[in-house]
Design a protein around this nucleic acid. Structure first.
Lengths: 194, 194, 194, 194
DNA sequence: CATGAATGAGCGTTCATTCAT
DNA sequence: AATGAATGAACGCTCATTCAT
């Protein structure tokens, strides 16, 4: 069973790779088309414009990520188990979709000034979801006595910074050492556990 | 008493603001010149090209930052005091030079693919210096019994990710909450102290 | 029945005229486009760049010229008849393609320093072909007793200088007198014939 | 005894070399100034503009050449001796002033469309002087019976084409063979002598 | 669904030239 | 006699986008 739009799929594949390699501005529509084995106007048949193609890629990647987030363990598990699962998820998705994650990590920061841009919207959504989940974990952990007493909203933010920082470092290839997942988990466990 | 090159200075000021607001590719030399109240060719009188102006700004900002790093407390202080000083430094420089730090946080990730670019070089230098300093702190703390026993190189990296992530969040204005410095310090203290 | 690429053809026609009138550096891509009734970027759709358009014109003109050279009479004719045919050919092609020949005569000398430029390559090829043909003629004439005894390689060069000089003078419009062909032929006949 | 304007002299020396190497349009005023060890505005102190500097060089070279022409032997010598002297003069000046002659041969053809340009004026003057001298030689030779009967004005032109072609070939370095002077003289002698 | 041809708008850069000193 | 700083005018070229087919 072949894809319904094989050439559209080729366009998206080529665009992901090229946007990740050369950035949004560093990638021309002509190069995308050539890499996909089609001609330029086909981009405009399938997408509104270059930005539409970029947004399509971004949203697909974030949606996949958001789906994983909703499958995280709920309060039936221990609070720290849930935090560990969150850290693991971020390391795994970065290993699974390196090009998409590189693309997000390298191009989105430059788009944040434009609050209407998909990057802003999706990254805000990401922070909201992470906040909610971490808040829930910390509340559970503190209430159950599993964690020490701590300022929940601020610790949520510290954990979010740490997790996003790890993902970012991983995605951008800034540190290729192994064992970062375990090191981060240990660091958090020592800080949180009562 | 006026600056030795008033127009060059205006160019740099305008460029910092515009590069931060619109990214490198999103900023034209013409707009920089107009914002500085000069004509475009003056950019090429004072700098080799657009990238030279960008690099000049980057290097000036990083050098100022590196200078602060070298003034950090040495082993005469307790290990945790030194780590706290490092965290504080990163929050303070971001508050002091918000445009330069925004510029770095928003534009550099896109340049990392080019290992020869100033962004790559300076960020690598930054990581090297942070690594060295944190390594020294952790060794001191573990040896003196101030800290728990821990895997030093990996914990160095976790701390670096946390600190750079905080700075990045601060610089990009992703979280404007107060007290992040204290929250991060507390989080680390609980994790490190014996 | 129209040409397959009417606008490309217009570009080439306009470029030949303008390059001949104003030289390579004195002709802007914008003026070429306007003279051809198209927009500037079309030049870059059909040619790699300004130099590519120039080279295209040059190679087309030289190829036409080289084709004529290969149709010159062979040893079945008398040696002097062959030399006369060579002189005539150069006068005729200059009359037939005045703009192309003016273009070559006026712009190529400035390009000779760049040995890789089409001008260098094509002019070297021209000299090689003329040398070969004249050498053959002189050998034939001397061996058959039609010509006086003479130093063949050096006389080849004198004849080549004379023929190229005539063509050049004709192309650049430096002497509009009639009868130059006959005068040159007579001059050579007296010098060569036994 | 030093020159009255040592820096002006340096400018001219540098300009001759650079114009010859890179052509008029390929040489910037900045490079001339740097090569001469001065700054750009000095060019405008000593010359009206870039073209004025170019014209100055051209006129100096042509005047030197014209001076040599006036020292050629008069009718007290045989006609052929006088023609041989003319040929020799052109080979010698090209050997003596290779940069100036390369400059003229490579840049002037492109300027001929502009009849007011120094190149046009000086080259026309050159042709006029050569015509007059050769005309005089041929008349003397034919009248004295030294030369065969021939159409004088047309033969003047053939000889001029030959001489200028030799000089051009020599100046542009198109043929580095030795003995071209003698070959040309022999060729002419056979054609002219009774 | 797909393309070849074409363009409007703009960009980074160059350069001869000038002005104040 | 000489310079550092600055500019007006342009130039070659690129690129996202469109249109007719």
């Amino acid at each position: 069973m072949t894809s319904p739009h094989p050439k559209k799929h080729e366009l998206v594949r080529a665009a992901i790779r090229l946007f990740a390699e050369n950035g949004f501005d560093g990638t021309t529509t002509l190069r995308i088309a050539k890499a996909a084995g089609v001609t330029e106007p086909l981009i405009y048949y399938h997408f509104a414009n270059k930005d539409g193609l970029f947004t399509y890629i971004l949203e697909r990647a974030f949606n996949e990520y958001f789906n994983l987030l909703t499958q995280l363990p709920d309060q039936s598990k221990t609070a720290f188990h849930r935090i560990e699962a969150l850290i693991s998820l971020h390391m795994e998705i970065t290993a699974d979709k390196p090009e998409e994650m590189y693309l997000i990590a390298s191009t989105c920061p430059a788009k944040l000034k434009d609050g209407a841009h998909a990057c802003s919207r999706l990254m805000a959504e990401q922070r909201k979801r992470l906040s909610r989940y971490l808040n829930d974990c910390l509340k559970q952990g503190v209430e159950s006595g599993e964690f020490v007493k701590l300022n929940i909203p601020q610790t949520v933010n510290v954990l979010m910074v740490l997790i996003l920082g790890l993902m970012r470092q991983h995605a951008l290839g800034l540190d290729t050492r192994r064992g970062m997942r375990k090191a981060a988990v240990d660091f958090c466990r020592r800080s949180l556990m009562a």
